[in-house]
Amino acid sequence: MAKETDLTFLESFTGGNPEKMKKYMNMFIQMCPGQLTLMSDHLKNQNYDQLRAAAHSLKPQITYMGIKRGEGLVKEIEHMAAEKRDVEKLPDMLSEFSNICNMAVAELKERIV
């Protein structure tokens, strides 16, 4: 099964320093689940502006962790929430995005150990 994360950028950014890599991976592991819960809550409450904001703030971290499948998806969620367009598709998209992120978090946790 293909990996969700690609740490090429992080390796290059940290000069391959394992401690620095661990620090950033840990930050992502700590922050990501909370952000996903927040996005899910905003969607449940049909608070699309807040959903857009939460998606927007998670976007750079998704990029830095090399979660390619998640990158396009979070951008799309951000745009759809901003424009309040095709909102009926958002639950499925968010569910897919959450699955990708959860798999990414699991991969990163494995790598840290």
């Binding site: 950014f13 620095k20 620090k23 950033y24 930050m27 703030s57 750079p60 971290q61 830095y64």
Partner: peptide
């Protein structure tokens, strides 16, 4: 920046 990861990465880089 309110994103601690972004701030830390930029701080480390500089």
């Amino acid at each position: 920046d309110d994103d601690p990861m972004q701030s830390m990465m930029l701080q480390d880089y500089l």
